[in-house]
């Protein structure tokens, strides 16, 4: 079972992780296409948001296109997906993403690109 270990105190908000993610999957440096996000909390501290593998999207999917793989990571079977976008609307962390550049919704698959590129060790995958 793989999961994120996030240390928000180490995050500088440099967005290198998001650039790495979007460049890998969309060949485009657009942080809004990344499968994780960073925002400032009420104390002006950086907070990294990632998929929590909470199952809500799996539950809402009407065609069983979403499932958990052997590492307990939520994955999308694009062949089954009917693009209803309910998973996007119902994801509590906003980490099931939608973009004009993708035919189907997309999400983090815990590939580790972000962790590898994080210069401060704020993101680690174990």
């Amino acid at each position: 079972m793989k999961k994120f270990i996030i240390d928000n105190d180490k995050c500088t908000g440099c967005n290198i992780c998001r650039t790495a993610c979007s460049t890998t999957y969309f060949k485009d440096d657009m942080p809004e296409l990344a499968r994780l996000s960073i925002f400032k909390d009420e104390n002006d501290k950086n907070k990294i948001i990632t998929c929590s593998q909470c199952n809500i999207c799996i539950d809402i999917c009407p065609v069983n296109a979403l499932y958990k793989d052997k590492d307990d990571v939520v994955m999308l079977n694009k062949e089954l997906c009917v693009n209803c976008l309910m998973c996007v609307g119902f994801c509590p962390s906003g980490m099931m993403r939608y973009s004009q550049k993708s035919a189907t919704p997309f999400k983090c698959v815990l590939c580790g690109i972000c962790a590898k590129n994080c210069p401060t060790g704020a993101i680690v995958i174990k």
Binding site: D59, I60, V82, M86
Partner: peptide, 11 residues
């Protein structure tokens, strides 16, 4: 059930 819509996508 969360998927009690009569058509795909009716949340």
């Amino acid at each position: 059930y969360s998927t009690d819509g009569c058509w795909f996508g009716c949340s």
